[in-house]
Amino acid sequence: MSENNNSGSDWYSEESATFGDRVAGAREALGMTQTELAKRLGVKLQTVRGWEEDISEPRANKLQMMAGVLNVSMMWLLNGHGDGLDGPVEDVTLSGDIRAVLTEVRQVKSEMSRLSDRLGVLEKRLRHALKEHA
């Protein structure tokens, strides 16, 4: 694990990976299962799954504990900056077509995350408007 300065791999950067991707990556790098992480943090397995699938996010105290257990910084978990993983070592050389598809997959995943956040905001506005209308 090292300082991620974006000079090397951007595998876990904010543009390429989600919070859940970084949690799963750090956990797997330690050879830890989701069940083991849940036990170490004192949460249910479903809670860890929710974090890794970007369905929910931990509270600040659990985020701090998680960073310690996974041996990464809280900032790296949140946005990919700081002490964390550089990304997997690529033993194989990927063709340009494969790299292009992987890049596009990461971009679509990032866009989906942004759209999901936007949808949440719109749902809140709609609920608020419906309450006022009733």
Rank of each mutant, 00 (worst) to 15 (best):
M1D: 13
E3C: 13
N6Y: 07
S7W: 06
S7H: 11
D10F: 01
E14R: 02
E14F: 08
E14Q: 07
E15M: 09
E15Y: 09
A17R: 01
A17Y: 00
F19K: 07
D21H: 04
V23G: 14
G25D: 03
G25L: 03
R27V: 03
E28D: 12
L30Q: 12
Q34M: 12
Q34H: 07
T35N: 14
R40Y: 08
V43E: 15
R49H: 14
G50V: 12
W51I: 05
W51R: 11
E52W: 02
D54I: 01
I55H: 12
I55Y: 10
E57P: 06
P58I: 07
R59H: 08
K62Q: 14
K62A: 14
L63R: 06
L63V: 10
Q64M: 14
M65P: 08
G68P: 13
V69H: 07
L70F: 11
L70K: 03
L70H: 09
N71P: 11
V72N: 15
W76R: 01
G80A: 05
H81L: 01
L85C: 04
L85M: 05
L85I: 05
D86G: 14
D91Y: 05
D91A: 08
V92P: 02
L94C: 00
S95L: 01
R99K: 13
A100I: 00
A100H: 00
L102V: 00
E104C: 05
V105K: 00
Q107I: 02
M112A: 13
S113L: 12
R114G: 10
R114V: 10
L115V: 03
L115T: 02
L115K: 07
S116T: 08
R118F: 09
L119E: 08
L122C: 13
L122F: 13
K124G: 14
R125Q: 13
R125N: 12
R125E: 06
R125A: 14
L126C: 09
L130M: 14
K131P: 08
E132A: 15
H133L: 15
H133Y: 14
A134M: 13
